[in-house]
Amino acid sequence: MIPAAFEYYRPTDLSGVIAILQEHGDDARVMAGGHSLIPMMKLRMAEVPHLIDMQDVAGLTGITIGDTITIGAMTTQAEIIDHAGLAEAAPIMREAALQIADPQVRYMGTVGGNVANGDPGNDMPGLMQCLDAEFTLVGPDGERSVKARDFYEAAYMTDREDEEVLTAVSFAKPAGGYAYEKQKRKIGDYATAAAAVQLVKDGGTCASASIAMTNLSDTPIYSDAAGAALTGTSVDADAVKAAVAAMLGDIDPVEDNRGPVAFKRHVAGVILARAIERAWSRA
C-alpha cells in the first residue's frame, strides 16, 4: 500500500493550481482532503505523477448564507456539521454530513472533493442534486457553472475538464421538510442505499418534491419522476408507493459485497419511503 513516486506541489493561489494542471494535463491532479484520492494512490489504482495539494490555496473555504447558500470547495465536512447558520438554513446538509464516513475522515474530507470525485458511493453528489445545486468551475478559460443534475456522466466521469478546479457549490436556500436517510453496514461505510428528500407542504398537499438517490447506479440518481409522483398528493401511502415505484424505474444498482440487486432495490424503496415520511413530518 505504497503509492508510486510523485511530485508534490503546494501552490497558494488558484492560478498557480491551474498553471500546473495546464502544464501536466492528465498527469496532474488536485488534492483536497485526500481521503478518496490517497487510498486510490496507495492501491496504485490512481497514478498521479504530479500532485497538487490545495490546502494553502486562498479563497476556497467558507460558507455564505443568504437566499443562495454558497460553500467553498475546500470546506470540510466537519465544518459543515459545525456551522450553526447552515444547520438552520439547510439542515439536510448537516443530517447528511453526519452520515458520511467517521469524524476523522470528516475533518479532512471536503465538499469539493466529495462532489468532484465522481464515486457513486459519495453522499454529497446526490444531496447536491436534490438541492438542485450548481458547481462553479474555474479553468484556463475562466469560470463557468454546471448544475449538479448535469454534472455526473459515469463512475469517476464528470463534466469537469482536466484543467478545471471546482471552487464552490451553491444552491437556493431550501424550503420545507427534509431528510437524508442512509443504510450502511457500519460506521465509515458507503451507502447500501441512501435517499435525499426535500419537500414543500402547502396546506395538506405536497407543493413540490425533490428526490435523489446515492450508490444505486454508476452516478447519483436525481429522480424527477419520484418527485412528481408526490407533488399534488397528500403524501399518503399510495403516493409514497408511486414515488418508490418511479424511483425504482430510475436506478440501476449492481451486486457487490453489500448484497445482490434484488436486495438493493428493496432497500432503496424502504429507505426512500422512510425519507419521505420523515421529510413530510418536518414539512
Partner: peptide, 10 residues
C-alpha cells in the same frame, strides 16, 4: 449481514 437477513425474511 443485512442482505442475508433480508434474504431469510424474503
Amino acid at each position: 449481514d443485512h442482505w442475508r437477513i433480508w434474504k431469510t425474511a424474503n
